[in-house]
Design a protein around this nucleic acid. Structure first.
Length: 559
RNA sequence: UCCCGGUUUGUGUAAUGGUAGCACAACUGACUCUGGAUCAGUUUGUCGAGGUUCAAAUCCUUGACCGGGAGCCA
């Protein structure tokens, strides 16, 4: 399936082609650098896909590197979940698992190198003062009074910073670049800060930690990364990235290329919003099936194949764009259409009694598991006098073009018989339909009538005596508008009140008691479902709706 | 206001001076024991204004609009 990938090109590949041609590099080596401070979402999936598939296209390698230089925010808990998600998607970093924290010693050496070259200095300005000295986008900054310290003094101070002699926040190491640069990132950026907090991997060994802008290009260089692919927000940092590479003089010289991050309609993607959704209980957790997190999508029933296909289709560019959620749905439908076994499940049951069918008789009908895949075989489903059909498959007063069941009308029960509705039994008090009575045509056994009579509708059904009870969770988009929080609204105002409907009285085929975890099923005519990884038990099967089937009747009915 | 980036149909994304294409969405129709799938077809686009050229989405000038940027976050 990745053959398709390799045919595609994009502006990053164009740059790489030129680099290869001009012999700037003779191979391609990328990296995926998550910060272990949260859960991965579908936006990360895009970044991962770009990095891994680019390496693959050029027969190169892609590393996994945790960008863990801020001990305050990071935790091993996230390292585990991130690796799990990447593995699940099927990306393989082989033996190249790295941590920026592994490079603390080398990074420190590079910093001393900079000091010795007169390109970095220890600054005693407070955080507030640094901000004031920085200037604004329209006004240049002012030089720090500590900018002209001697190399010896800087070296001494920096070593004492490392030794823990100074309190947190009292001093920083800054790159000596240009306080008048129109690019704020070049106005003597801080490259080391004192942080007296223990790190999830290095413990209390360090009390100074490198900043991203210093650490990242050097980590890339140390790993021999050729193309450091990142999102657009780092575009303004590229001059600094290059400055660090040029001044530190590492053996390898990586190149940074930026692309636009993924936005999806009907979705929020920022870590902050996702966290709020979890913390306020709007969703049940990071893995709530409505979340765009990879663990959420996995629990929802999305497959790695569908997600990667999606990443392939959305392309790579520098334009800020918002991809239509419908494309994601298309990808999972397309994947599951080929793979998912069909099964009959009645979500909102309506009892049907076939008056002329012998009481106590049971027949088995052979139905195919997946018409799209002959290899999937067939199964036998039991039929009897009392069955359930979907409530929406019967209407007492049908509109035009409704070709399901109605009084006097005839439909085919999938794989079984034609039945005709003879009467409707209602609750005398509420008027609710309790059950309907039908007659069947014995000659239509298997679903066809020898007299050539046609029926327009085929509906799914389940033998009442054989059905097992199940719960279905009908998930829909978390938000009801394409761009939540747009036009000054709060994103909470745009939540879809119907993003979850729980149906507890479903009737499904007995085989679903043995449903395999992680596998998607098509509930015939209803949509794709999968067993819920947390709540499914044989005693109480619980299914999540992954996505509905395209429903052209719904469109007609709306008119 | 300063710096950086961007603008191709409803949404994404190609076309790198030479037929504006593909996918999703939408809409027709065919077929169907899933109103699914499949198949066939249709609609809609180069941000504006100038210029260069036989020829411009592409090059030049200029304007508009959108996104990002003043963490000891990444």
């Amino acid at each position: 399936m990745n053959e398709k990938t390799n045919e595609n090109s994009n502006f990053i590949h164009d740059f790489i082609d030129i680099d290869l041609e001009e012999k700037v590099y003779d191979h391609v080596h990328t990296r995926f650098p998550p910060e272990p401070n949260g859960y991965l979402h579908i936006g990360h999936c895009k970044a991962m896909y770009i990095n891994f598939s680019t390496a693959e296209k050029y027969h190169g390698l892609c590393n996994l590197r945790f960008d863990d230089t801020n001990p305050i925010k990071e935790d091993v808990e996230y390292v585990e979940s991130i690796m799990e998600d990447i593995k699940w998607l099927g990306f393989d970093w082989e033996d190249r698992l790295y941590y920026a924290s592994d490079y603390f010693e080398e990074l420190y050496e590079f910093a001393e190198h900079l000091i010795k070259k007169g390109k970095a200095y220890v600054c005693d300005l407070s955080q507030q003062e640094v901000r004031e000295y920085r200037g604004t986008p329209t006004e240049p900054g002012k030089n720090s009074p500590y900018r002209e310290r001697t190399v010896e003094e800087n070296l001494d101070l920096f070593r004492r910073m490392r030794a823990g002699e100074f309190p947190e926040g009292s001093r920083t190491l800054r790159a000596k670049i240009d306080m008048a640069s129109p690019n704020l990132n070049m106005r003597d950026p801080v490259i080391y800060r004192i942080l007296k907090s223990s790190h999830h991997r290095t413990g209390d060994k360090w009390c100074i930690y490198p900043m991203y802008d210093f650490q990242h290009p050097l980590s890339d260089a140390l790993e021999g990364i050729t193309h450091s692919l990142c999102s657009l927000e780092y575009e303004d940092h590229r001059p600094l990235y290059n400055w660090v590479v040029n001044e530190c003089e590492p053996e390898h010289r990586p190149r940074q290329i930026e692309f636009a991050r993924l936005n999806l309609t009907y979705t929020v993607m920022s870590k902050r919003y996702l966290r709020e959704l979890v913390e306020t209980g709007i969703v049940s957790g990071w893995d709530d099936p409505r979340m765009p997190t990879l663990c959420g999508l996995r629990r929802r029933g999305y497959t790695p194949e569908a997600l990667k296909d999606f990443c392939d289709r959305i392309g790579v560019a520098k334009t800020n764009s918002t991809v239509d959620y419908a494309l994601l749905e298309h990808c999972i439908r397309e994947d599951l259409n080929k793979k998912a076994d069909r099964v009959m499940a009645v979500l909102r049951p309506l009892k049907v009694i076939i008056d002329n069918y012998p009481d106590g008789q049971i027949e088995y009908f052979e139905v195919e598991n997946n018409p799209e895949n002959p290899d999937s075989g067939t199964r036998n489903v039991p039929f009897s006098r009392e069955i359930y059909i979907e409530r929406e498959d019967f209407m007492e007063n049908p509109p035009k073009k409704y070709f399901r069941l109605y009084p006097g009308g005839e439909v085919r029960l999938k794989g079984a018989y034609f039945i005709k509705c003879e009467s409707v039994l209602k609750d005398p008090l509420t008027g609710d339909i309790k059950e309907i009575h039908c007659t069947y045509d014995p000659a239509s056994k298997g679903g066809n009538s020898p007299d050539g009579r046609k029926v327009k509708g085929t509906i799914h059904w389940i033998s009442a005596a054989h059905a097992i009870d199940a719960e279905a969770r009908l998930y829909d988009k978390l938000f009801s508008v394409p761009n939540p929080g747009e036009d000054g609204r709060e994103y909470e105002d745009d939540l879809n009140p119907n993003s979850l409907e729980v149906l507890t009285d479903c009737k499904v085929e007995p085989r679903l008691r043995e449903a395999s975890m992680g596998k998607g099923y098509q509930f015939l005519r209803m949509g794709y479902f999968c067993p819920d990884s947390k709540d499914f038990t044989k005693e109480r099967p619980v299914f999540n709706r992954i996505v509905g089937l395209k429903d052209s009747w719904a469109k007609v009915a709306k008119k």
